[in-house]
Design a protein around this nucleic acid. Structure first.
Lengths: 348, 348
DNA sequence: CTGAAAGCGCTTACAG
DNA sequence: CTGAAAGCGCTTACAG
């Protein structure tokens, strides 16, 4: 660690700049810049000297200066509203995947919570704070969408609004998720399937994924002659009981439930046990949950590839920043993993 | 919205700059800057004209240029490791509070997850990407601390390491939290109190808050002649049962439990009911939880002022950025709210 | 109360 | 393969 006087007294205690590095390495600042960016070739020896000097001085390029000169902040804005009923751990899993993937492309992530309208979006985009934005928890008629359209910067929605047009979106193919769930159960002989759904606020807001999952479920039910009833559900025993009772009264021969509610899953087994219901003998249970969770919970599941969706969103941002055209909608296929909580219907 | 040609053909389709605003308003760029920052007085009329022009052109100052000239990025780095066993919703509640408070000081928040060492910290600080950093989930001997010390920028820890010295820290006074919990129960006549604690990994990492809460509990127990036994606990029925059984066998006359585990709380009532234990008649239950949760869950609780801690962290950052000295440790006092789940010991 | 100008620390044509 | 210089869009002394 060399911190001795560096000649010029100009930087009394300020930052180490590219000029400091250049002087110490005996090259021009532009050469340091090119050595760093790789945008033009630099002789092996010079490159090495520059690298060493950088390490010695602890040089880190000034983000603002770089952003100003290159017209790139290397920052992605992540718009993450914290609405009632959303399952926060999944949101965080998305965020972590996005940060990780962004870092692997040498980008950072600015966290914007509490964005219902587009003000923060505009501020961050017009002020060149972020090069692009990713929006989470997209509703079918999302109030942020008009702003996104006029942003003049790449944007990726995690979710799928009603009229996506040319907006770049990525998400699990939720309709397919609903469909394969019903197909799986239908193949096992189930004719009445109940859905323990998301908290009611999620449907009231017409959050895209919840609605689409429902459509997939109902569509496949109609096609395969499976009756489907649904109950929204909060994360409490009381509500779980109400939901299960509601399903039972709607479907007297209920033999399977699909649980699309991550917060309720830890309560489910207990509730069924206390009702004397054996899984899968008396009731088949199919959950919908992040693949990371599915590895731990011993339930058959339609899995949500959270990490993959988050990473895809970042990759779609990167492609656009590199000037490429990208497809408007990138749907990821659902997977079904069997952990023995679904079984064939027994004849009565 | 005026978007007609603006004279000079220099900015073909680029950003609206301060020069565009100045030209359109008929003033010097510096006057626009001062009108925006308020750092020198601007005549009422000129200010109004500038405001209007800014609104008309949709001008937003370029964040990088501003950062370069002012030596302030107006960004706070939030280092939020996502370790095993942490309760993600609480982490997110901290983050939301921090973002909200930061925005009210005209700052944004950069999200740094997966920071075990100090690399990202150094990158962000040395590159002037962030003016200051806030660290969450601080361990008693946190590996990030040496880096923080050498950062040359304001830093605030949420939590309290073993040797804080002059590091700026803020947190709930966890020892006091443990103490008032025991005091409350002791006053009700309890002589054997069990703790259902955090997941084992949290203690294994020596996370500050968990250890300090334990110390407060044990210290008050010793002082008040209350026996205290403890069991770490994962977020599952199985583990909750194991923990409760463990406490019962350690303390045959157990009359009260303290639950310092947010993920287990939803499971607790159910488990006690199925054991035929009435609260508070057979067992007093005192939880430790965010004040935002405590409003919903009907348990007596020692509350964690999550929002206040997050906001305090930001305020401590701001004070330092303004050049003020701040106290090294800012402890927030615990509160105890009674919701009827704790009661006097019945004589047997 | 206001303006002209230097400078913040980079990147990137332009030259060689 | 390398350098000198212009310029990115602001802020802030310096002048008046």
């Amino acid at each position: 660690m060399v911190t001795t006087a560096r000649g010029s007294g100009r930087h009394r205690h300020g930052h180490v700049t590219i000029n400091d590095v250049a002087r110490a390495a005996g090259v021009a600042p532009s050469t340091v810049s090119y050595a760093l960016s790789g945008k033009r070739s630099v002789s092996e020896e010079v490159r090495r000297r520059i690298q060493e000097t950088i390490a010695e001085l602890g040089y880190e390029p000034h983000a603002g200066a770089r952003a100003l000169a290159s017209r790139r902040s290397q920052i992605i804005g992540l718009v993450m509203p914290l609405r009632r009923g959303v399952h926060v751990p999944i949101l965080m899993e998305f965020a972590a995947a996005i940060v990780t993937e962004a870092r692997s492309h040498d980008h950072d992530v600015l966290l914007l919570t509490g964005e219902v309208d587009g003000d923060g979006l505009r501020r961050v985009a017009n002020g060149s704070l972020a090069d692009a934005v990713i929006l989470m928890d997209v509703e079918e008629d999302d109030p942020r969408i008009p702003t996104v359209r006029g942003l003049g910067r790449p944007a990726v929605l995690i979710g799928l609004p009603d009229e996506p047009d040319d907006l770049v979106c990525t998400d699990l193919d939720w309709e397919a998720a609903g469909r394969i769930g019903v197909e799986h159960l239908a193949a096992l002989g189930h004719r009445q399937v109940g859905l323990v759904g998301q908290p009611p606020q999620v449907y009231e807001r017409h959050t895209g994924f919840a609605e689409r999952f429902l459509r997939g479920l109902l569509g496949a039910g109609a096609a395969l002659d499976v009756e489907v009833a649904t109950q929204p559900c909060e994360a409490s025993f009381g509500d779980l009981r109400r939901a299960l009772d509601g399903l039972r009264s709607a479907l007297p021969d209920l033999t399977a439930v699909v649980v699309h509610n991550e917060a309720v899953l830890p309560l489910l087994r207990e509730e069924l046990t206390s009702r004397g219901i054996s899984v899968p003998e008396d009731l088949s249970v199919l959950s919908v949950e992040p693949d990371s969770m599915a590895r731990q919970v011993p339930l058959s599941a339609v899995t949500i590839p959270v990490d993959e969706i988050g990473r895809t969103a970042v990759r779609l941002v990167m492609h656009q920043l590199e000037g490429h055209e990208v497809e408007a909608a990138t749907s990821l296929p659902p997977r079904l993993v069997e952990h023995g909580s679904t079984g064939a219907v027994r004849h009565r």
